[in-house]
């Protein structure tokens, strides 16, 4: 069974009496361990797709299966629980809390999953070590460079050991050099077996992932399965084996 499965998912907004189909009958599968990019121009519906995949939003119709849990009309509380335990987010603008220091920011998801303070600190330091920021734990986000802030955000996404990580334009606010470093960090995480979904409008960035899904006008326009062609993919065979 796939890790994530969308079946005939639609999302319809009503804007001033006008019906906007942000997602139109989308079906999609993501397997555990995959490194995928969702690509499309702005307004194409890729953000909506990510929000629904990331349990930030619920679809108007259709079903979602995440890690064995099927849900159609999940409550806000259930969605929050799924976000907390199964999903990690990395955003374009980092979205760190400016009043907290680096390690406190990384601890944030664990506060909501009821992890003890001692365990929180231990795991947060471990996650920061994994992204190469073990020496910046007491800094405030404002004292860090953009690339470092994004590493903190990645550490925060990793810390609750999620089943899937969504990165929404993670390099969009970084210079190309730093962006490249962040992308190679994602590559490394993928090699470690993480499931990562990269959302971007930039085909160049999407090119780093073995599999790309293009969204246009709320529909999946093109499915480019390049699993075998993935240059940086270490064990493509295992992904297929898992299916």
């Amino acid at each position: 069974m796939a890790l994530v499965e969308l079946r005939n998912v639609s999302k319809i907004y009503h804007l001033g009496g006008e019906e906007i189909r942000a997602l139109d009958d989308v079906s999609l599968e993501i397997n555990a361990g995959e490194f995928i990019s969702i690509i499309g121009p702005s307004g194409s519906g890729k953000s909506t797709l990510m929000h629904i995949l990331g349990c930030l939003d619920t679809p108007t119709s259709g079903t979602i299966q995440l890690d064995g849990i099927m849900f159609q009309d999940a409550s806000q509380r259930q969605l929050a629980g799924l976000r907390n335990r199964k999903i990690g987010f990395v955003f374009q603008f980092f979205n760190l809390l400016p009043k907290l220091n680096v390690v406190q920011n990384v601890e944030l998801p664990m506060i909501y999953s009821g992890v003890s303070a001692k365990e929180r600190r231990r795991r947060a330091l471990g996650a920061l070590d994994a992204v190469g920021l073990a020496d910046r734990t007491k800094h405030r986000p404002s004292q860090l460079s953009g690339g470092q802030q994004q590493r903190v955000a990645i550490a925060r996404a990793l810390v609750n050991d999620p089943r899937i990580i969504f990165a929404d334009e993670p390099t969009g606010n970084l210079d190309s050099h730093t962006g490249e470093a962040i992308l190679s960090l994602f590559r490394r995480l993928s090699q470690e077996g993480r499931t990562i979904v990269l959302v971007t409008h930039d085909p160049e960035i999407a090119a780093v992932t073995p599999r790309r899904i293009e969204i246009r006008d709320g529909k999946i326009a093109e499915k480019v399965d390049t699993t075998l062609a993935g240059l940086d993919r270490i064990r493509p065979a295992e992904t297929t084996a898992a299916e």
Binding site: D67, F71, A74, D161, E238
Partner: peptide
Amino acid sequence: MNAPPANPSPEAA
């Protein structure tokens, strides 16, 4: 499989 360890309790609670 090299995926991260599965969450022991798969329910959403």
